[in-house]
Amino acid sequence: MTTEVTSATASGHGPAASVRRITDDLLQRVEDTLRSLLDAERDRYAQMDERALAAVDALADLVTSGGKRVRPTFCITGYLAAGGKADDPGIVAAAAGMEMLHVSALIHDDILDDSAQRRGQPTMHTAFADNHHNSGWRGESRRFGEGLAILVGNLALVYSQQLVSQAPPAVLTEWHRLCSEVNIGQFLDVWAAAEFSVDPALSRLIALIKSGRYTIHRPLVMGAHAAGRADLAAAYVAYGEAVGEAFQLRDDLLDAFGDSAETGKPTGLDFTQHKMTLLLGWAMQRDEHIRTLMTRPGHTPQEVRSRLEDTGVPADVEQHIADLVEQGCAALADAPLEAVWRQELAEMALRAAYRKN
């Protein structure tokens, strides 16, 4: 089966519907691959020691907790748009590996951010710490919880490498870049938060390599290479860099002004952790008192939100997001893609930047 979808189907549905069906089928196979791997690992460790099951079960709970599968979707779309065959198990393995890497990053990110909630549930390190405390075990509950969560995050990283090893070899260079960048991006994020100095250029770099490239740019390019279409890489990079930055800027706005009931995690973490996002960097350039406010003991997120709104920067960030989406879609205008895939990528850009379903 190929991805030739330029004519309407016999049932009366158009090319866009065919695109979605092909993509959804591959995404379902990604889900099946993730579940199959975790089920097999559970069976294996059940024969060793039942306590080991807590690691696999905690990971499985997070994998199946309702993630949007953004990275696998971009990887698969990049592959199909490049003419990849929908019956190739290699692209499924690559996309599944990408999601497992993302889960690893989430677990570690929650520890670094001291976040208590993820997808509406206690974060993994919090749940382990609570279990330690409630059981009356020896040692410090916080250290126990964070230690076990780090190990489960590492386990997810091992599984991600195991899955991607089944992908076409052409994706591996991009995969290795993706893995190193997300770690370096996280490293710089923690470092910049400690320095807490206004440096919009560094904030933008962190946003790109910690989130934007690993979410959109590199998954798309991996898809192109898996399909044997390295000629599409330049267009995918230009689109992915722009839309990836828009994606991260939306995250920054949601952290500052979002509703935790909708986002599934606490808001205002960037404030409490002193994360030097582009939003905060721009705002501090206009109002030096924001820095003083954020470092003052006892300040509230609402005080910071109010001050941010007074600078006008949130509206500027919204405009920048819109410009980035337009820029990203324009990068595909002359790319050798079927019109239906160009349209699909344009719609995906909007969903990434505005979190539309």
Rank of each mutant, 00 (worst) to 15 (best):
T6P: 06
A8W: 03
R21W: 02
I22T: 05
I22M: 11
T23M: 07
D32H: 05
L37A: 11
A40D: 14
A40G: 13
D43N: 09
R44G: 08
L53K: 12
D61K: 08
G67F: 08
V70T: 13
T73K: 14
I76H: 05
A82G: 10
D88A: 06
D88E: 12
G90I: 03
A93G: 13
E99Y: 10
H102R: 07
V103M: 06
S115D: 10
P122S: 06
H125A: 08
F128C: 02
H133Q: 13
H133T: 13
H133N: 13
W137Q: 11
W137F: 09
G145P: 02
V158I: 07
V158P: 02
Y159Q: 13
P169H: 15
L172M: 06
R177Y: 04
C179R: 13
E181C: 06
V190S: 14
A192Q: 03
V198I: 05
V198Y: 05
S203K: 01
R204Y: 01
L205D: 03
L208H: 14
R213G: 15
H217C: 06
R218H: 07
V221Y: 03
V221R: 04
G223H: 02
A224V: 02
L232M: 13
L232D: 03
A233R: 04
L254A: 10
L254T: 01
P266T: 04
G268C: 03
D270R: 01
T272V: 02
Q273M: 07
M284F: 01
R286D: 04
R291F: 04
L293V: 00
P301Y: 04
R307A: 00
E309A: 03
H320N: 09
L324R: 02
Q327S: 14
A333P: 01
P336T: 13
A339Q: 14
W341T: 01
A352W: 00
A352V: 04
